[in-house]
């Protein structure tokens, strides 16, 4: 249909702008590769046999043809574990950001849209959450509910809620007073419709950019908490947990640290590049 064809023009404009940034495109490609690896490794590797099974004969082998990244102190193939671990990092990064984006930006947008004392109360409460250091919040949640992936996601998500709420509020404040918002009211649109159909779509770009860069932040934090034993429980090959497991062998078997570390670094770098590209593409000053 003609209409849908035309409508993609606006999106293709953002895409064209995004394409100009070479780093962002490379980042996107790398990110896609990581996603594919995460999906494929779930299908290819057997969790029991390839990931967690202890093979005493294969302990601490250096990288070779059979074991590309070598094996760890329990004889597990590091390559398989790194690939298999991608899903945890990606899942934790994405889900915890989704939690904080949905909750944070809805609360922030609502506060800004309603205004008055309601806004003040909501924002002060949100800032109260900001006062608690992220690591304390994680320790609290993990020690109360136990170390598991969902709890880690929840803790990470909650600790970034205030940032998203403040960003969303600022963004809605600038959109709220535009003439087209008043025009849609004059058209008879209800307040909810104005908020969801007109205010939020126009305020979304800074939130989107922030969300992208927060994903990498959450992946690093998740790895960090796992390293400290607060995150993903041990037999699971989460990258941070692998770093933690390999720590005693760092002098003689550095590849135990290098490969999971590289995996974290490449993923985070790729996502950050995508975030940069998105920011440039969505910037109204550069667009059009």
């Amino acid at each position: 249909m003609k209409k849908s064809h035309k409508k993609t023009r606006n999106k293709s404009l953002i895409w064209r702008q995004f394409k100009k940034n070479k780093g962002a495109v490379i980042g996107l490609v790398v990110f896609c590769v990581i996603v594919v690896i995460a999906i494929v490794s779930v299908i290819v590797f057997d969790f029991e046999a390839d990931i967690t099974a202890v093979k005493a004969a294969d302990r601490l082998l250096p990288p070779s043809k059979e074991h590309w990244f070598g094996t760890d102190n329990l004889g597990r193939d590091v390559f398989a574990r790194v690939c298999y671990g991608a899903q945890y990092s990606l899942l934790i990064g994405v889900v915890s950001v989704i939690i904080s984006v949905v909750f944070g930006s809805l609360v922030g947008a609502f506060a800004a849209f309603v205004g008055g004392w309601i806004e003040t109360v909501i924002m002060r409460l949100i800032e109260l959450l900001l006062m608690i250091p992220g690591i304390l919040l994680v320790i609290m949640i993990v020690y109360t509910f136990g170390a598991s992936i969902p709890n880690l996601m929840l803790a990470l998500g909650l600790s970034t809620v205030p940032h998203f709420a403040r960003n969303a509020r600022a963004s809605v404040l600038t959109v709220r007073n535009n003439e087209y918002i008043e025009a849609s009211r004059a058209l008879g649109a209800s307040e909810l419709r104005v908020l969801f159909k007109h205010v939020l779509p126009n305020a979304i770009s800074p939130i989107l950019v922030q969300a992208t860069s927060r994903i990498s932040g959450c992946i690093i934090s998740a790895a960090g908490y796992s390293f400290l034993g607060l995150g993903v429980p041990s037999p699971l090959p989460e990258w941070g947990a692998m770093l933690s497991d390999g720590r005693p062998f760092i002098y003689n078997y550095p590849y135990l640290e290098i490969f999971p570390g590289l995996a974290i670094m490449i993923t985070v770098l790729a996502i950050n590049q995508i975030g940069d590209g998105l920011r440039d593409a969505l910037d109204p000053k550069l667009k059009r």
Binding site: K3, K7, N178, Y180, E182, A183, A186, L187, P201, N202
Partner: peptide
């Protein structure tokens, strides 16, 4: 119904 002063700002940029 109302027609606003500035057509540049009275249309929502994200919709056709």
């Amino acid at each position: 119904a109302m027609v606003f002063q500035d057509p540049m700002t009275s249309l929502d940029p994200v919709y056709t």
